[in-house]
Amino acid sequence: MSRAVSEVVSPSSNEGEPASWARRLVGNQQFMLFVVFVAIFAFFTFNDSVFASVSEIGNNITDFSTLVLLAVGETFVIATGGIDLSVGGTSGFAGVVGAIAMEHLAPHGEWVVLGVGTLVCLGVGIGIGLINAVLMHYARLVPFVATLVTMGAAEGMSLVLTGGAPVGSNFGAITLTEPKISVFSYPDIIIILITVVAGLYLHYSKFGRYTFAIGSNSFAVRAVGVNVRRHLTWVYVLSGALAGLTGMFIYMRLGSGAPSAGVGTELVAIAAVVIGGARLTGGSAQLSGTVLGAMILTIVSSGLIIMNVSPNFNQVAVAILIALAATFQALRKGSRADV
């Protein structure tokens, strides 16, 4: 997964051949992902109608919220041709630090506790994002190694701080993750809003254009006078910040800060981005694809639970989805630049 140093910019051909609507739809990764999502959803519902029940949809949205922010941050990073392995560890570490802070704040009333806790989690995430940037720019580590280092450090520090056991027990926080508006809880809505804003930012702002451009050809971007280092710093800080917020969300779900909560989730987030059609070499990604990828991964794992299938199949199912998505991408004729 190491980053190709001299990635050649793919010629942005404007799909010269006259294609029928049907062919264009089939060639559209987002549309195909949506079809796959509907098919999987229908399959699970056919198997057990409980899957389409309001409360199961609520469960799925909670699971989706736990994953999607990590995947959104990862989309920005992967668009630049990088990788952020630290998001899982960061979310766990942020949740633990936040939980410790919130335990000390307990006498101050619930909203103060949760508000400060959110800021602490956000701060921890931003801090780790900055450390990633420093390791890359000053210690000259490639993103894979830099974020591998912070992943290990964050996971280790979570254990050191907690002595291995979960911290705190906050029933009030748990109740906040119950559905309030239809099947959505308040935190779910905030997370969905963040996702929408991030998507607009990636695809319609100058920041987003630079993000893709750096992934396509960072030398060219530097040549036209963009501060690539600073831009990458922001991208990793954003990824860290979103991981920090995920840590807060996990804290609210569990009512406690769990040192092992984020372990391994970076791989699920990366899977969502890859299924969503992003190129790991950078320059191409679709946030809508990432969201669909996260939706598919979410319903696959919860559907297998409802079906009472051995969860070991979950990993196999995810592997197959990634393989299909990647193959589909490779087979697409004349891959367009998504800038």
């Binding site: 199961e56 469960n59 779900r253 569990l254 794992s301 639970i305 409802i306």
Partner: peptide, 20 residues
């Protein structure tokens, strides 16, 4: 069901059971 050592996964699994 298996939590694969993650309390979050365990939480998801059990939510699923409570619905089913």
């Amino acid at each position: 069901a298996y939590s694969q050592s993650s309390p979050t996964t365990a939480n998801s699994n059990i939510q699923g059971w409570l619905t089913k």
